[in-house]
Design a protein around this nucleic acid. Structure first.
Length: 496
RNA sequence: GGCCCCAUCGUCUAGUGGCCUAGGACGUAGCCCUCUCAAGGCUAAGACCGGGGUUCGACUCCCCGUGGGGUCACCA
């Protein structure tokens, strides 16, 4: 139904200054979906041009996160590809060469102003209630003189030359034309005094050289978007399709996520960093589904999407340009949906490590049955230990006050336990066909409600007040353990 | 503050001039199912930021307010 499109080349280009968070992950997802649905390529590029903010482990963090989410790059630092290297720090010469090309064409110039001078003019502008921007001092330096100073080794940067009059119009796929007065645009630095390019140059050069067809990036780039458009024009390059989805807002909708919010979310059991998600019990399927729907929708009713669905159904046309608050309770909901969508064998393998982490020794013989019993009850994989760990224990701790319900005496409880032992001993298999009616009759004989007997059974067998259905539980536990736990309870009640 | 972007239930959203007494989802409340808890089913409360236009007719188009967000570095 979607019209055939040319294979898209879409890049995810994070800066290794921190870990991959929800916002970046959503961008990566959209990148991946757009690439895959068109039979194109998903490219990972590391934008490590800022040595001061460089975090060494960040790149590995991105890769782990992308791998966990199921978004493997077709090209990138590890995957390689026709446009290697994919780390900008290794492409320094390329940027320099392009910057010099702009100097030649008159679209850029050498600037010898010191950081101190820049600070000073900024302070003055602030004091005069003016907008802060470069004052253009080096703009009109004779090219020969500037070149000579550079040749002499004088410290310098290269700045992009923005016309001082007129306007610039850049076209965003979601928002249409964005026009600004050139006078509000700054002569931004292209090459820093350390010789490395700045984002504005490096990303544009790479996007062109790498044949990127669609640039999907956060809307924090909107203010500099017209400059980027001018850079493409200065080189005479064809622009990619620009898409600026909006940012994520904190859950209450007030402001974008900050460091503090990240910590706060984590404390309340919700992740901001992708790599926190696995241990918090989230499924990558659910995270992708959930993230995709913050800022994108397919129609007025469909919300459950597998990765295959997303690849087929995603479209940048349906992206929503307005800022969106993240809604964690919906993440829980999607996690539940995707857990229930798992094959039970798959679910079993996913919960195994969580039982182990909780200190249980998993019995492979019953794990599939345990999984089946708790699958519809699980929202987060982290819950399984508390919910079903008793299946893997030899005994459960009994609290007589909890076994004896308010409606019965300890003596009655002991009697009930004894009668249950007899009842279960008499059958070859404990299941609802063989035992439910006798159990209900027994309750009536004792003047109790069936619910009281079920409650006693539940506490006795599981040590919990909530558990999977009892006959299913007993089937998994086995006749032997079931009876042993009842006998032990009866004894304790009798001696209690 | 300048510039830019955005504006439908608490939240995510559908809606592209008449299909809208505005649809769905999460959450919330109630009911049903039921051995507990879930799951599932049903129901309820809940929104077009305000004011002007344009039009026979605006949630939808335009303008102005207001509100929210982003951005103003030799960071990305």
């Amino acid at each position: 139904m979607t019209p055939p499109t040319k294979p898209a080349r879409v890049r995810f280009a994070p800066s290794p200054t921190g870990y991959l968070h929800l916002g970046g992950a959503r961008t990566a997802l959209y990148d991946y979906l757009l690439a895959k649905q068109s039979g194109g390529s998903f490219i990972l590029r590391i934008e490590d041009t800022d040595q001061k903010r460089y975090v060494p482990e960040a790149e590995a963090n991105f890769k782990n996160a992308l791998h966990w989410l199921g978004l493997p790059p077709d090209e990138g630092p590890d995957a390689g590809g026709p446009h290697a290297p994919y780390r900008q720090s290794q492409r320094k010469a390329i940027y320099r060469q392009h910057a010099e090309q702009l100097i030649e064409s008159g679209d850029a110039y050498y600037c010898f102003c010191s950081p101190e001078r820049l600070d000073k003019i900024r302070a003055e502008q602030l004091a005069n209630n003016e907008n802060t921007r470069y004052d253009g001092k080096c703009r009109h330096l004779p090219p020969g003189e500037a070149a000579r100073r550079v040749a002499n080794g004088e410290e310098h940067v290269i700045r992009f030359k923005i016309p001082q009059e007129g306007t610039t119009t850049a076209h965003d796929f979601l928002r249409g034309d964005i026009t600004v007065e050139n006078e509000v645009l700054d002569d931004i630095i292209l090459i820093k005094s350390d010789g490395l390019a700045v984002y504005h140059l490096a990303a544009m050069v790479d996007d062109h050289l790498m044949g990127i067809t669609h640039v999907i990036r956060g809307s924090e780039w909107l203010p500099t978007f017209p400059i980027h458009k001018r850079i493409f024009d200065a080189f005479g390059w064809e622009e990619p399709v620009w898409v600026h989805p909006s940012l994520f807002l904190k859950p209450d909708g007030k402001g974008k996520l900050s460091k503090r919010d990240i910590q706060k979310a984590r404390e309340s059991g919700y992740p901001i960093f992708v790599n926190d998600m696995p241990e918090m019990g989230f499924l990558p399927e659910a995270v992708n589904n959930w993230m995709a729907l913050i800022g994108w929708s397919y129609d007025d009713k469909t919300e459950f999407f597998t990765m295959e669905d997303l690849i087929e159904k995603f479209s940048i046309e349906k992206l929503n340009p307005s800022p969106a608050a993240i809604n964690f309770s919906k993440l829980d909901h999607f996690n539940g949906l995707h857990i229930r969508n798992l094959e039970v064998e798959d679910f079993a393998e996913r919960i195994r490590p969580f039982f182990e982490k909780a200190g249980y020794t998993v019995d492979n013989a019953i794990l599939p049955k345990v999984a089946a019993a708790i699958q519809t009850r699980t929202k987060r994989l982290t819950e399984v230990g508390d919910m079903a760990g008793f299946f893997f224990e030899d005994e459960v701790e009994l609290v007589t006050e909890r076994i004896v319900s308010k409606k019965m005496s300890a003596g009655q409880a002991a009697e009930a336990a004894r009668r249950l032992v007899n009842l279960f001993s008499a059958v070859t298999e404990i299941n609802s066909d063989t035992c439910e009616q006798p159990l209900r009759d027994m309750a009536k004989e004792m003047g109790l409600k069936a619910g009281h007997i079920f409650g006693l059974l539940r506490e006795t067998l599981t040590g919990q007040k909530i558990s999977p259905p009892l006959f299913e539980t007993m089937d998994i536990l086995g006749k032997e353990k079931t009876i042993a736990r009842l006998e032990k309870a009866a004894e304790e009640l009798e001696n209690g």
